[in-house]
Amino acid sequence: MFYPNSPQTSPQLTQIPYGQQYAMMQRQIQQPYHPFATTEPQARLYPYHYQGPIQQEQGGFITQQSTAASPQYVQMRVTPVDQSIMSGYPNQTANGSSSSSFNYNIHPQQQQQQQQQQQQLRHHAMPVGSVPLQDDRYRKQLIVNYLAPDVTSTDLHELFSRFGELDGARIIYDKQTNMSKGYGFVYFCHAEDAKEAVERMSGYEFHGKWLKVGYSTNPLNIVPSNSSPYVHAGSRGAAG
């Protein structure tokens, strides 16, 4: 039997160049792979992502010199942007860049009308829970959420009447099932009393439920100042 490094198959040491006398086997001759043993700084910083320098080929596509990437890492192929796409944008300079302001050559009167329309939209648009300043009635009506099913309009009136005089209180019921929808409205005579009720009743436990109280901004629920107070009856038909 002959071994790869046996004296019968191995040459004389004098015939082997210096430095390879003890590297006779194939696994010894093959050098191990060192990912950080390279002179390129990109490979030292990113050993798993770097795959060699990027070269520009004919046709405008950018390719990489090395083989496919590892399945664990996804390499994105980048193509140059066609400058003709950006030619339609206004205020574009000769080098292809555009300024931040756009001039669509709008007539001054049209621009003024658009600004007025935007101001009107901001004036009428009102986020949930906010209180408008032009109508004091919005500051007097509250919406009470997360009410228990057994709470009546009379219970709601008695709960909030300790903060001040009320114009009314009612629970909203479903017309088909005649069941409470879980929320109601309270109408105060003074805005200061309503503000105190919002601050003190939010998070209050009532009939096993934690109440959420806020201003009601729905104009359909506003009680006119010259109208008669609501009837605080315990029956659902009268309260709904």
Score class of each variant (00 low, 15 high):
Gln20Trp: 15
Gln134Cys: 09
Arg137Pro: 04
Asn226Ala: 07
Ser99Met: 07
Asn95Glu: 04
Ser101Gln: 13
Pro229Val: 12
Ser10Trp: 14
Met76Gly: 05
Thr93Leu: 08
Gln65Phe: 15
Pro90His: 12
Ser6Gly: 14
Ser228Lys: 08
Gln65Thr: 14
Asn5Ser: 06
His107Leu: 12
Leu13Ala: 11
Tyr73Gln: 02
Thr67Phe: 14
His123Phe: 05
Ser235Asn: 07
Leu13Val: 07
Ser227Cys: 08
Ala23Gln: 15
Trp210Met: 02
Asn91Met: 13
Asp193Val: 02
Asn91Tyr: 13
Ser100Ala: 11
Val186Trp: 06
Ile16Ala: 03
Glu205Gly: 09
Phe163Ile: 07
Ile143Asn: 01
Ser84Lys: 04
Tyr104Asn: 02
Gln115Val: 11
Ile62Met: 14
Met76Tyr: 13
Arg200Gln: 11
Gln176Val: 09
Ala125Gln: 04
Met24Ala: 07
Asn103Tyr: 08
Lys209Asn: 00
Pro224His: 14
Thr177Val: 07
His49Phe: 15
Ala197Gln: 03
Tyr22Arg: 09
Ser130Val: 08
Pro219Lys: 00
His107Gln: 04
Gln111His: 04
Phe206Gly: 01
Pro149Cys: 06
Ala69Gln: 08
Gly164Glu: 02
Tyr22Ile: 07
Gln15Arg: 08
Asp174Tyr: 05
Ala238Asp: 12
Asn221Ala: 05
Arg200Lys: 05
Arg139Pro: 03
Val186Phe: 09
Gln58His: 15
Gln64Tyr: 09
Tyr138Trp: 04
Ser66Phe: 15
Lys212Leu: 00
Tyr187Gln: 00
Tyr215Trp: 01
Asn178Cys: 04
His123Glu: 03
Tyr3Asn: 07
Ser228Gly: 11
Pro108Val: 13
Gln15Glu: 08
Gln116Lys: 03
Gly203Lys: 01
Gln110Asp: 04
Asn226Cys: 10
Gln12Cys: 07
Gln42Met: 03
His49Ala: 10
Val186Leu: 07
Gln8Glu: 09
Leu159Asn: 07
Arg27Asp: 13
Leu121Met: 06
Arg200Leu: 12
Thr177Glu: 01
Met76Glu: 02
Ile85Tyr: 06
Val198Cys: 06
Thr217His: 04
Ile54Val: 06
Asp174Gln: 06
Arg139Lys: 12
Gly164Val: 01
Pro80Asn: 12
Pro11Leu: 04
Gly214Pro: 01
Ala68Cys: 14
Val151Ala: 05
Asp167Gly: 02
Phe36Met: 15
Ser10Val: 14
Thr217Ser: 04
Tyr3Thr: 05
Gly168Leu: 03
Glu165Phe: 15
Ala23Ile: 13
Asp193His: 07
Leu159Glu: 03
Gln28Thr: 09
Gln176Thr: 10
Ser225Phe: 05
Leu159Trp: 01
Ile171Gln: 02
Ser228Asn: 12
Gly182Ile: 03
Tyr138Val: 02
Thr79Trp: 15
Thr14His: 03
Pro224Thr: 05
Arg44Ala: 10
Asp155His: 13
Gln112Thr: 09
Val198Pro: 03
Arg77Gly: 05
Ala239Ser: 04
Ile106His: 03
Ser227Phe: 14
Phe36Asp: 06
Gln141Met: 00
Ala69Glu: 06
Asp135Ala: 04
Gln12Trp: 13
Gly237Cys: 06
Gln113Cys: 07
Gly182Glu: 00
His157Glu: 03
Pro127Ile: 14
Asp155Gln: 15
Arg162Lys: 10
Ser216Phe: 00
Ala197Trp: 08
Gln28Met: 15
His107Thr: 07
Ala69Val: 14
Leu13Ile: 07
Met126Glu: 03
Asp155Ser: 09
Ser87Ile: 12
Ser153Tyr: 05
Gly96Glu: 06
Phe2Asn: 05
Gln30Lys: 13
Ser101Glu: 06
Arg77Leu: 15
Gln120Trp: 15
Val213His: 01
Phe2Glu: 03
Leu133Glu: 07
Asn91Gln: 08
Ser97Met: 03
Thr67Ile: 07
Tyr215Ser: 00
Ser227Thr: 11
Glu165Gln: 12
Gln118Pro: 11
Glu199Asp: 05
Val128His: 13
Ser100Lys: 06
Ser98Lys: 05
Gln26Glu: 12
Pro80Lys: 05
Asn5His: 10
Thr79His: 13
Asp82Gln: 13
Ile29Pro: 11
His190Arg: 10
Tyr50Trp: 08
Asn105Met: 14
Arg162Glu: 11
Ile106Lys: 04
Pro127Trp: 15
Cys189Asn: 08
Leu121Arg: 08
Ser100Glu: 02
Lys140Asn: 02
Gln176Asn: 03
Ile29Leu: 11
Met126Gln: 02
His123Gln: 10
Tyr46Asn: 10
Ile172His: 00
His123Gly: 11
Pro11Phe: 14
Tyr146Ser: 00
Phe188Gly: 01
Arg200Glu: 06
Ser225Glu: 01
Gln118His: 10
Arg162Trp: 08
Gly182Met: 01
Ile143Asp: 00
Arg139Gln: 03
Tyr215Pro: 01
Thr67Asp: 05
Tyr3Leu: 03
His157Ile: 07
Gln134Pro: 11
Gly234His: 12
Asn91Arg: 08
Arg236Trp: 01
Arg44Leu: 15
Val231Met: 04
Ile106Asn: 08
Lys181Pro: 13
Val128Pro: 09
Gly237Val: 12
Gln64Thr: 12
Thr63Asn: 11
Ser225His: 06
Val74Tyr: 14
Gln176Ile: 10
Ser70Lys: 11
Arg77Glu: 02
Ser101His: 13
Tyr187Asn: 00
Met25Arg: 02
Ala239Arg: 12
Ala68Asn: 11
Arg200Met: 07
Ser97Thr: 12
Ala233Trp: 02
Gly19Phe: 14
Leu147Ile: 15
Thr9Cys: 14
Gln75Phe: 15
Ser228Thr: 08
Met25His: 14
Glu40Met: 06
Glu40Trp: 12
Ser202Val: 04
Pro132Met: 04
Trp210Arg: 04
Gln12Ala: 10
Ser66Gly: 09
Pro4Ile: 15
Arg170Lys: 06
Gln72Thr: 08
Arg77Ser: 09
Gly60Gln: 07
Thr63Lys: 01
Gly208Asn: 14
Ala148Tyr: 05
His107Ser: 04
Ala233Gly: 11
Gly237Leu: 02
Glu192Ile: 12
Asn178Val: 05
Asp193Arg: 05
Gly208Glu: 02
Pro108Cys: 07
Thr93Pro: 11
Val131Ile: 11
Ser101Phe: 15
Cys189Val: 04
Gln26Thr: 12
Gln120Val: 14
Gln65Arg: 09
Val81Trp: 14
Pro108Trp: 12
Ile171Gly: 02
Gln117Lys: 06
Gly60Leu: 13
Gln119Phe: 08
Tyr89Asp: 02
Lys140Glu: 07
Pro224Ser: 12
Gln55Met: 13
Asn5Lys: 08
Gln65Asn: 05
Gln12Thr: 06
Arg162Met: 07
Asn95Thr: 04
Val198Asp: 01
Ala191Cys: 06
Ile29Gln: 05
Gly129Lys: 05
Pro219His: 01
Val81Ile: 08
Ser228Pro: 10
Ile172Thr: 00
Asn105Trp: 15
Val198Ala: 04
Gln141Ala: 01
Ala239Met: 01
Val231Gly: 09
Ala69Ser: 12
Tyr173Pro: 01
His124Val: 10
Ile106Thr: 08
Gln134Ile: 11
Val151Phe: 00
Leu159Tyr: 00
Thr9Val: 09
Ser202Arg: 07
Asp136His: 06
Phe160Thr: 03
Asp135Gln: 04
Gln112Lys: 06
Asn145Ile: 00
Ala68Asp: 12
Gln115Thr: 06
Val198Tyr: 10
Ala69His: 08
Tyr215Gln: 01
Glu196Ala: 11
Ser98Glu: 11
Gly59Met: 04
Leu156Met: 06
Ser98Arg: 11
Ser227Asp: 05
Gln28Glu: 07
Leu121Thr: 07
Gly129Arg: 05
Ala191Tyr: 06
Arg170Leu: 01
Gln110Cys: 09
Gly234Asp: 02
Asp136Glu: 07
Ala37Arg: 10
Ala125Thr: 12
Phe36Gly: 07
Leu13Gln: 09
Phe163Val: 06
Pro17Ile: 13
His34Tyr: 13
Gln116Val: 11
Gln64Ala: 10
Gly96Pro: 05
Val198Trp: 05
Thr9Lys: 02
